[in-house]
Simulated assay, not measured.
Amino acid sequence: MSTEYQTLANDGLWENNPALVQLLGLCPLLAVTGTVTNALGLGIATMLVLVGSNITVSLVRNWVPNEIRIPVFVIVIATFVTLVELTMNAFTYGLFMALGIFIPLIVTNCAIIGRAEAYASKNNWYNSAFDGLMMGLGFTLVLVALGALREILGQGTLFAGAELLLGEWARDLKIQLFSFDYPLLLAILPPGAFLGMGFLIAGKNWIDGRRKAKLAKAPIEKAQRARVTTVN
């Protein structure tokens, strides 16, 4: 993988993750992550829109005047959102109904408009497609992680309702980890989503802090080893 693709992958999945770092698209992220199935469905839909809109914006970038580029980008994004919405309505109707208004609201997701403006409008279509894929995958991973956390704490299950996304065969994918006499409403309701998101961001910041501290110590330890070797 070239350095450019490595940078795009690292940015999308970790360093510049649209949810954990840029804090974009939080409204649907917090609203629909009650289960892994809902989170995965919205994540895949967002990723498809990101890839499609990035490719299209990159292909038309030389023909769009700067004065109207944002409206054109919004029209492109809205077109792909409509295609995804109609596809979900036709093939995953149960999930389509569960996600509701948050599917068309993908049009207003700042992560998608931001990537169209910041990257796709300045680069070739295949790099733009990869950028959209990595940003979408990073967003999806955060959705799924938050959905898993809320579903486990709130319902004691994983993959509940998987048949809504994958068909009837996936009904057996549901895992009952433990049972509640009463569900943990804090995890199921929006406040739980805010708390869960806070823990995910804190976890990322902690890992980044450990990495930076380790990198800062590396030259010192190397110099110390060199002095010991010289003395011996």
Rank of each mutant, 00 (worst) to 15 (best):
G41R: 08
V64K: 09
I55P: 02
V36D: 03
L59D: 00
T37Y: 00
L59F: 00
L42D: 03
V36M: 14
P65M: 14
V51K: 11
T37V: 09
N62R: 08
W63H: 13
L40S: 06
V60L: 15
I55M: 09
G52W: 02
V60P: 00
L40H: 04
T37G: 04
N62K: 09
G41N: 05
V64T: 11
T56A: 13
I44V: 11
G52H: 05
G41K: 08
S53N: 03
V60H: 01
L48Y: 00
N62E: 14
L42S: 05
G43W: 05
L40P: 05
A45C: 08
T46Q: 07
T56I: 15
G52N: 12
T56R: 00
T46D: 13
V51N: 10
T46F: 13
N54D: 12
W63P: 00
R61H: 11
A45K: 02
T56N: 02
I55V: 13
V51R: 12
M47Y: 06
G52K: 09
T37E: 02
N62L: 12
V36F: 00
I55N: 01
V51I: 15
T35K: 00
G41T: 06
T46W: 10
G41L: 04
W63R: 10
N38R: 08
V49W: 07
A39C: 08
N54W: 03
L50R: 11
L42M: 13
V51H: 10
W63C: 12
L59K: 00
T56D: 04
N38K: 06
N54V: 08
A45H: 04
L48V: 13
V60Q: 01
T37C: 05
V60N: 01
L48A: 13
I44N: 02
A39T: 09
A39Q: 09
V57W: 14
R61W: 01
S53I: 03
V57H: 07
V49M: 10
T35Q: 00
N38I: 06
G52A: 10
L40V: 08
P65F: 14
T37S: 07
I55F: 11
S53W: 06
G41Q: 06
W63E: 09
A39L: 06
S58C: 03
G52V: 03
I55W: 15
T46L: 11
V51W: 10
R61N: 07
G41P: 07
N62A: 14
L48R: 04
G43P: 10
L50H: 14
V64N: 12
G43T: 07
G43Q: 06
P65D: 09
V57T: 12
V57I: 13
S53Y: 05
R61L: 00
L59R: 00
M47A: 14
N38V: 05
A45N: 02
P65W: 14
V36L: 12
V64Y: 05
V57R: 00
V57C: 14
V49S: 13
L40K: 08
L59G: 04
N38H: 06
V36Y: 00
W63F: 14
L42E: 03
M47T: 11
L48S: 07
S58E: 03
V49H: 11
V49R: 07
V49K: 11
I44D: 02
P65R: 11
N54G: 11
V60C: 13
R61K: 10
L40Q: 15
I55L: 10
L50N: 10
M47F: 10
V49I: 13
T46E: 08
I44K: 03
T46A: 10
S58M: 01
G52F: 03
N54M: 14
T35S: 09
